[in-house]
């Protein structure tokens, strides 16, 4: 190879490299757009809200006076609604996922159900609100209660639970199913003794991420008529006299964190804006904490299983 040819080769390589460098710069800039915007939002909100974050803020009801206002009814409402959501969505979602994956015949009907379940996860949440308004509030007369809200959000997370359950149990190798079957285990024994225990980490992770999404939902709850101003707590689930447990709280009216935030943001006076920011910080912390729990569970339960 002559010197001349070598120079030509170098120029060619340099030209090829040029476009690579252009892309790397573009890629870094694109990444920064996302990260910086997100960070700026979080930091700005924290700066605005941090002065309002105090014990009083968590233990006070909303009020006309901004310095006395707090998020007590909102965070209690959020926790109770999510509790109902979890109780309703987890068993139904896991059972549906197991049935679809392990028992349902793989034919055109199964394909249609599969496509629909996947699509359900993408339906705008306000549509679920409309459905719940018609079904739970008006037909079943459950009122605009914690029960209605929890059931509504459970419809919202149900597709997520079903899809993660299916994916989790699909990840269990067939050799494990065959090992159990070859010992004479029935299909249900195989599922209960093996498939479920080995996939529960992934399933729980999916459920918690679904619930974290539900924590931030506003539209469907406004649609079913959640109040924006609540200055009382639902009845306690525990009583001093027999039967010591009460379900009256299910029928209570409620508000949740994002609705409380929305209420404060829409006030004209700027002092309430910092209340909204503080509530926002708490809300972000709640969802981040749930995601952290999900990651922790996945780590703990998967550590001992490698296929």
């Amino acid at each position: 190879m002559t010197i001349d040819n070598l120079h030509q080769l170098h120029r060619l390589i340099a030209r090829n490299r040029f476009w690579e460098k252009i892309f790397i710069v573009f890629g870094i800039l694109s990444l920064l757009v996302g990260i910086i915007t997100l960070l700026a939002l979080l930091i700005d909100m924290t700066i605005d809200g941090l002065p309002r974050l105090s014990w009083q803020f968590f233990t006070s009801f909303p009020s006309r006076k901004y310095e006395e206002a707090g998020i007590l009814s909102a965070w209690v409402g959020t926790c109770l609604v999510i509790l109902v959501t979890a109780i309703a969505a987890i068993p139904i979602g896991i059972a549906s996922g197991i049935y679809l994956e392990e028992y349902a015949k793989k034919n055109w009907l199964g394909d249609i159900i599969e496509i629909n379940v996947t699509n359900l996860a993408g339906i705008p949440s306000i549509i679920y609100g409309l459905l719940a308004l018609g079904l739970f509030v008006e037909q079943l007369k459950l009122g605009r209660s914690i029960l209605t809200a929890g059931l509504t959000l459970s419809l919202l997370v149900l597709p997520i639970v079903i899809v993660t359950t299916r994916e989790a149990i699909r990840a269990i190798p067939n050799s494990i199913r065959e090992a159990a079957c070859a010992l004479g285990a029935s299909k249900w024994q195989t599922i209960w003794d093996h498939i479920l225990p080995y996939s529960i980490g992934s399933i729980l992770t999916g459920i918690i991420i679904g619930l974290a999404r539900a924590v931030g939902e506003t539209a469907p709850l406004i649609t079913i008529g959640a109040l924006t101003f609540i200055a009382f707590l639902p009845d306690s689930p525990f009583k001093s006299e027999f039967p010591y447990i009460s379900f009256n709280w299910l029928q209570a009216e409620f508000t949740v964190m994002p609705i409380q935030m929305f209420n404060w943001v829409s006030r004209p006076d700027p002092e309430f804006q910092s209340n909204a920011a503080a509530a926002g910080v708490v809300l972000v912390f709640m969802t981040l904490a749930m995601n952290a729990i999900a990651i922790f569970i996945r780590y703990r339960l998967r550590r001992r299983i490698k296929w």
Binding site: S175, E178, A179, A180, A182, G184, A185
Partner: peptide
């Protein structure tokens, strides 16, 4: 088939112990 598998055991190509 479960009755058959209760009477006839099987060992597979790849070791497949339960976790």
């Amino acid at each position: 088939p479960i009755e058959v598998r209760m009477r006839i055991g099987m060992v597979f190509q790849k070791p497949n112990p339960f976790p």
